[in-house]
Design a protein around this nucleic acid. Sequence first.
DNA 1: TGCAACTAGTTAACATGTTAAATATACGCG
DNA 2: CGCGTATATTTAACATGTTAACTAGTTGCA
Lengths: 155, 155
Amino acid sequence: MAASSDANDSSALLRDFEHSLPMQLLKAREAAMARFRPMLRAHGLTEQQWRVLRVLAAWPGSDAGEIARRSLLLGPSLTRILQHFEARGVLARKSDHADQRRAVFALTAKGRKLFAAVAPDSERLYREIAQAFGDEELTTLYELLARFCSAVTTN
Amino acid sequence: MAASSDANDSSALLRDFEHSLPMQLLKAREAAMARFRPMLRAHGLTEQQWRVLRVLAAWPGSDAGEIARRSLLLGPSLTRILQHFEARGVLARKSDHADQRRAVFALTAKGRKLFAAVAPDSERLYREIAQAFGDEELTTLYELLARFCSAVTTN
DNA sequence: TGCAACTAGTTAACATGTTAAATATACGCG
DNA sequence: CGCGTATATTTAACATGTTAACTAGTTGCA
């Protein structure tokens, strides 16, 4: 890649571009995920699959809507991941007798084993990041992000 | 979707889950993008296409590597977007005579017109967000995110 | 000169993101 | 009871994310 040489005449637009909050949030997320992705890949998981696994480990018997909300996945993505995991024997689907539209999900023994194998690696990387950034700054960042969400979300 | 009813026995895992920084960053990004996406869609653009348009508006004559780095897009995604825009007549490709591997890109008149049409809407929405969140908090958030990136990025 | 190592960009293959539409079930109410 | 409406989930279609492999051009150096 060519070394960048910012022309002076674009400084106004440059400032505007660096003040794109979605881009800065994406960049920060990438900085963190770059550490997690290789580890997850070594376990045969994508980032999104790991989020679903975590939700089902914490709340077994969730229905699809609840999994989607907690894992921040949209319906179609979740449908594909649940089908993938079901085919792999990681989770089991059971139709809800009280409401036939719903299906509830739970990890199988294989799924729980997979979760147990990944969780320690995940926590280790999280602690590395927390240490690199600093616990106080991390807490401040969490709080700011939460305030941002509640301030900006329209509902 | 079913109302959530958090079981007490999962409180430890719940705390862990809410302390997933990649998820909180994603959530914040979503809160912001939810405002931008409908506007961009009305102009026939995706979020990523708009990022490429902004880069080329600010730095005409960038090569693909430079566009990728500035727009935070990976090579394959950028290739597709450049092909899409080229077919639509939004930008023009020119091979670099000094280095035949490179191609440099610039907006056409049509591309500049498109940029000029979207930019005011984009800035209006950005100001709405800044006002909802508060300028000082926004500045703090930018600084924290920048520190996070430099602390966590391994290079 | 000639070849090995490197770099820019693209292609390939599979997974997810995004919106709209379709399907199936549940619910409310005349 | 029966029908319109709402809800849960899936499917469809296209765009992007991610990694690996591939192509073509470039560079350094024996």
